[in-house]
Nucleic acid binder design. Structure first.
Length: 825
DNA sequence: AGCACGCCGACT
DNA sequence: GTCGGCGTGCTC
């Protein structure tokens, strides 16, 4: 017996931890901490736990308590992974907000937030026992496994599956365990492996000039080795150790000579951890002065920050927003703060990133999905240790371990790619960034030439400060814009496949002048809608301002916002024509048709299909930049962040496909896209041309794009949104209901909708048939919740969560999957 | 997410 | 009888 000091006593206390598992589970689990780990355990550290019978996971410690769980025996934690927490307090708060706002599990957030490299994988390994029972009664299959194990001591479950050629192996393995022949070793492997490079060092003995002289003499008869030595001396002038690869290249001495020197102890080999990320070149000055207009805007942003946390920067294309961002970032990091710069995914491979990288040098990190796991862990670590003060990243960069953010810039804030749709957490990174900034008491700049309606609304209602920058930087001229009526040209038989005579003439001129052309065709052109070939009429829903979608299966026209449907049409109700066409064509088709008209021109396509791999996008872009290709045909992507000096013409194949998209945001999106596309033509010394083809050439959106009248577009949109109760006047939540059996789904979705309706009344719409009614053998129905702005959202969310929980508890609906999407746009 | 367990239908 | 397929429940 001994007397316990108070601290001693504290150490002896039994601790329990609540952990988040990287799985989509509704609750967190509690584990018991073994005494010997008491002093290592801390909130935010990763721990190894066994979850279920076989699996090991790295969970994250969320809280620590001394209260043992009442109703069950907690399992022990197996190990503590980290010396210092990987997740800080602010991140936990941020996670909590994401989980409660977007109605998902904490495990979902963890899966999204941690780079895979920080999650550990468990591998189940079977190990043969050293002492085997005397009597061995084995089945044939058991014997087979036993034989292999005797030879190689251990094998994985996968090996067993392969060995036996069958999937059900657990009963056999269990039997072997029961017979005390094998045991299961669960191995947790750290996925992150630092990149090691070999470096060559000279034995310090030869630092002495005399000794070195002698060495030269000795090596005289080994010219290759002498080469190696000379190369080393040349390269090592600044740094003692020389990369092995570099030495080999420089001296051309060959592996053998190097090995000989190593064997003779003249050289020594050293493995060093190096960064996988491209090392930046020397930081060099990029001198620029803000123009008077920019300076004015800069000061306005500063003023805006005095009163508001968020500033919306409405700056027309080519107004030099990037320079403004740079100055703002510079100011924010001056006192050691951190800055997050969010960009849409595809813009991350383009010029804007290069410019900012050049300016800030190695203080900056880039984070997006095309980096592999190891690279992402490195960026993560460099944010933790402060090596990166500025991070450029796609939406997932909001989860990086920032300690003291001073500023978040969200460029192109209207971009739809800030929203994650699948899987949960279905978060909107721009909105999440505003909350994140609030946590850090940081400021936010939302920048766009064509702000989203809701952000502009927030500025109009004084939630955000508004700064406008509407002077083009460096006197760049606005492009010459023209709209061509496809209907008109069709009537006069002047169309050549999808192209009007105007566009073809313009293209011919541009190509003759050795200038380049970008053609824009929306990917959404694949959606099937009905359109009158004579007048361009497209049937619309009577309840909503969206085009109806033609469904082959039912032969009807559907609105997937309110569930309205009508039978299909054979005669155009507007002009009486019988030429009703199903529309939907993509970039491949355009390329095909165009190569018939301009057989000489080299073309490239820029869309999701042609840019699957990490470098293909870069390749297509650099080919175009180097003028290896003359025509670039693309989707959305061509509109984003690309600057090409030699492009004199931008053609929009069909603006109607954008405008007719069945979505209440179709007009807003169309305006944003067309304005963006138009802004890409002729950026430097020459005036560019924009040619927009459309059936409905008098559409207000097209007019507003031509006149660059964002405010009018905003006003018109607001009228419509108000009339049809869409955001920003309401909030939307989608509930997607899925099941393999269409009948069960029908029943289930109706029942869920009416259960919700009982509590939330007319806020519930549907269930409706979504555009794609079946994905991966699951039928899908959608219930839409429209919540008026004044209603307490959190209350609605609680009701929603509870109702779905009760619904899923019914035994007929256990296998029905429900997904919640808050702010689904 | 896995995996056990139970039930069913199909074949060496 | 054994195997594989699938639905359902559970994991601290």
């Amino acid at each position: 017996m001994q007397f316990a000091e108070p601290t001693d006593f504290a150490e002896r206390e039994t601790l329990f931890v609540e952990v988040i598992l990287p799985l989509s589970l509704a609750i967190n689990y509690t584990y018991r901490v073994p005494y010997e780990l008491n002093d290592r355990i801390a909130i935010g550290k990763r721990v190894v736990v066994q979850f279920g019978k076989h699996k090991m996971y790295t969970a994250l410690v969320k809280s620590i308590c001394t209260q043992p769980p009442e109703f069950y025996q907690a399992k022990y934690i197996i190990d503590v992974v980290d010396d210092i927490p990987v997740i800080n307090e602010k991140q936990f708060e941020f996670w909590d907000w994401i989980a409660s706002y977007y109605l998902c599990n904490e495990g979902d957030v963890m899966s999204a937030a941690l780079p895979t490299g920080l999650k550990l994988a468990s591998e189940t390994i079977l190990v043969i026992r050293e002492e085997l029972p005397e009597e061995l009664v084995l089945s044939e299959k058991e014997n087979l496994i036993f034989q292999v194990l005797q030879k190689q001591q251990r094998m994985s479950i996968d090996d067993v599956v392969e060995l036996l050629g069958q999937k059900t192996v657990y009963p056999i393995i269990n039997s072997l365990i029961a017979k005390e022949i094998i045991f299961v070793a669960e191995e947790v492997v750290e996925k992150y492996k630092p990149l090691l490079k070999s470096f060559i060092k000279l034995n310090p003995f030869y630092k002495d000039q005399e000794n070195l002289k002698q060495l030269f003499a000795i090596l005289e008869r080994a010219p290759k080795q002498l080469d190696a030595l000379l190369a080393y001396l040349k390269l090592s002038r600044t740094d003692q150790a020389v990369p092995r690869q570099l030495l080999l290249e420089e001296s051309a001495c060959g592996q053998a000579a190097l090995k000989a020197l190593l064997d003779k102890d003249i050289f020594s080999l050293e493995k060093r951890q190096v960064s996988r990320l491209n090392q930046m070149g020397d930081e060099f000055e990029v001198n620029f002065e803000l123009s008077p207009a920019q300076l004015h805007a800069f000061n306005e942003v500063q003023q805006g920050f005095e009163e508001k946390d968020v500033v919306l920067l409405h700056g027309i294309t080519a107004s030099g927003k990037t320079q403004l961002y740079i100055k703002l970032i510079e100011k924010a990091i001056a006192n050691g703060g951190q800055v997050l710069f969010l960009l849409p995914e595809i813009a991350l491979t383009t010029q804007i990133v290069e410019r900012i990288k050049q300016y800030f040098g190695d203080k900056i990190g880039v984070y997006h999905s095309k980096f592999n796991d190891n690279e992402r862990v490195e960026i993560w670590n460099k944010v933790v240790n402060g090596a990166y003060q500025v991070v450029l990243g796609a939406r997932s960069a909001v989860f990086l371990p920032f300690k003291e953010l001073k500023l978040i810039v969200v460029d192109e804030e209207h971009e739809a790619s800030y929203k994650q749709h699948e899987p949960a957490p279905r978060y909107q990174a721009r909105d999440a960034a505003v909350f994140l900034a609030h946590l850090h008491q940081a400021k936010v700049v939302l920048g766009s030439a064509t702000p989203s309606i809701e952000s502009f609304y927030n500025a109009q209602t004084d939630k955000y400060a508004l700064v406008t920058l509407n002077e083009r930087f460096g006197g760049v001229q606005l492009p010459l814009q023209q709209v061509v009526s496809i209907a008109e040209e069709t009537k006069r038989k002047k169309m050549t496949s999808y192209f009007t005579s105007v566009l073809i003439d313009d293209m011919a001129t541009a190509l003759e002048n050795k200038e380049q052309v970008i053609l824009f065709q929306n990917r959404r052109g694949y959606a099937t809608i009905l359109i009158c070939a004579t007048c361009g009429y497209a049937p619309k829903c009577v309840n909503c301002d969206v085009s109806l979608t033609y469904h082959k299966t039912s032969g009807k026209l559907h609105c997937h916002y309110c569930g309205y449907h009508q039978s299909s049409i054979n005669i155009c109700p507007a002009c009486g024509s019988v030429h009703i066409e199903q529309k939907g064509f993509g970039t491949e088709r355009i390329e095909e048709e165009l190569s018939l008209i301009f057989p000489e021109a080299k073309m490239a396509r820029l869309d999701l299909d042609s840019t699957r791999t990490k470098n293909s996008l870069q390749q297509i872009i650099s080919d175009f930049q180097d003028k290896k290709t003359q025509v670039l045909i693309g989707t959305q992507m061509v509109a984003k962040g690309l600057d090409f000096d030699n492009v004199s013409l931008i053609g929009v194949i069909n603006a109607d496909t954008l405008l007719n998209y069945p979505d209440f945001r179709a007009f807003e999106r169309s305006y944003q896209l067309l304005a963006q596309v138009a802004g890409r033509a002729g950026r430097r010394d020459k005036q560019g041309k924009v040619c927009i083809q459309a059936y409905d050439e008098s559409h207000r959106i097209i007019k507003q794009v031509m006149e660059n009248d964002y405010l009018q577009m905003y006003a018109d949109e607001m009228d419509e949104r108000k009339q049809f109760n869409y955001p920003p006047f309401t909030r939307l939540i989608f509930v997607n209901v899925k099941h393999k059996d269409a009948n069960v789904l029908q029943l289930a979705s109706n029942q869920l909708a009416s259960a919700l309706r009982q509590q939330l009344g007319s806020r519930i719409l549907g269930p409706e048939q979504p555009l794609v009614a079946r994905i991966r053998n699951y039928y899908i129905k959608q219930i839409i919740i429209k919540i008026e702005k004044v209603a307490p959202v959190q209350k609605v969310k609680t009701i929603l969560k509870d109702t779905i929980r009760d619904f899923n508890a019914q035994k007929d609906f256990k296998s029905v999957i429900t997904q919640i999407d808050v702010d689904p746009y």
